[in-house]
Design a protein around this nucleic acid. Structure first.
Length: 125
DNA sequence: CAATTGACGCCCA
DNA sequence: TTGGGCGCCAATT
């Protein structure tokens, strides 16, 4: 395959490590991939990614906590939402996700034997 | 080489 | 809170 050490690979790798039931923003992915301000590049990379790819692209959303319109065509906007709901992610009435609860925390990522840190928010719900 | 676009992010009204 | 505008950086035409 392409022997390209493009940032694409780093982006995919970062997205792959997003835990189940959580979501990350483009800027988050970009930063973790070593691309401080290249949130758009992440989006571009994902756009190049065909449906059925082995990465949880559905967990990638924008900083607004909403799924990106993706240009309007391609897949129904409800599709991504459905996938996230299946993972346990809850959408607000406005169609937004609580990044406070479902936002992936890269700093809290257990490595090695770390067991879990639970970022449970005492929210009202 | 220059201009335009873009699965974005942040600030202001 | 929601909506609109400007900015950042790279890729594409």
């Amino acid at each position: 395959m392409a022997a390209k050490d493009s940032p694409h690979e780093a982006i995919y790798a970062t997205i792959r490590r997003i835990p189940h039931g959580k979501v990350a923003t483009y800027g988050q992915i970009a930063a973790l991939s070593g691309l401080p301000r290249r949130a758009r590049l992440v989006g571009k990379a994902l756009r190049e990614t065909p449906d059925g790819f082995d990465i949880p692209w559905q967990r990638v959303i924008n900083a607004s906590g909403r799924v990106s319109p993706r240009g309007g065509l391609g897949v129904e906007e409800g599709y991504q939402r459905h996938l996230l709901e299946e993972e346990g992610v809850v959408f607000s009435a406005s169609g937004r996700i609580d990044l406070e609860r479902f936002g992936w925390d890269p700093e809290a990522r257990p490595r090695g034997k770390g067991r879990g840190s639970r970022r449970q928010s005492p929210g009202s719900e």
